[in-house]
Amino acid sequence: MSVSDPPPAQASAVCATHVPTLLRYADGSLVLSQRLAACCGHGPALEEDIALANIALDLLGQARLLFAHAGALEDQGRDEDALAFWRVESEFHNPVLCELPNGDFAQTCLRAFFYVAWQAELWAGLTHSVDRTLAAVAQKSAKETRYHCEHLAAWVVRLGDGTPESQRRQQRALDYLYPYANELFCDDDTDRAAAAAQLGPLPSTLEAAWRARIARVIGEATLALPAPVPFYSTGRQGRHSECFSYVLAEMQALARAHPGATW
């Protein structure tokens, strides 16, 4: 694996930052994919069922690439399934935004839009990572994410500027979700170490571009951007929301009922 060969003395320090950083990215993709996959077959139109499933599949693909990379780097024999199915809640590092319930279609679309819009900035930042494998994943994912942003933004705009009913729902989703975006831009020690090692961008550096994009889409959707509030969720540090253990319980139940089985 291509962690541009850190000197041995630094290796454990790099790993202490490197693997958790990869898991933050991977967990976000996995958990959002899990949420979107649950919608499949229940969407407002057949065409849209197919479109959302495509996004869920892309996210799942990103998670798998990142897990494989993290597992290899860590070298403890954990593959993608060990990482997905055999960690407990506190060992997951996705932002809380990704795990929130789907809600109605307005909330489903807006939550996914918030996250993929963040990913768009993240991938751009990661193309300069010293971890060339990560940079390659970012480069591949950036193309997927560009389309996800376009499609989800199209829905946010249509629902915002649709009927009074759809506008009410989209505004409600916006008011609910907006504070959860704050977490995406909070730097902690892991982030600072990752940035110092040139692994990935500091989250706070992604904020301006993200907020500009969101403001643009929300404006086009004729919605009102909520005032900023000092609310900070902490999923990236492993402290999640109440709903998260249900998400994991459902996802992991079968795998955990058969320890050691292959599928």
């Binding site: 899990q34 499933a53 693909g61 798998r64 459902e250 079968l254 599928w263």
Partner: peptide
């Protein structure tokens, strides 16, 4: 689909 026992099987099923 939300309970598939491996990520590969989840991908295929979805």
């Amino acid at each position: 689909v939300t309970r598939a026992p491996s990520l590969k099987r989840k991908t295929i099923l979805l």
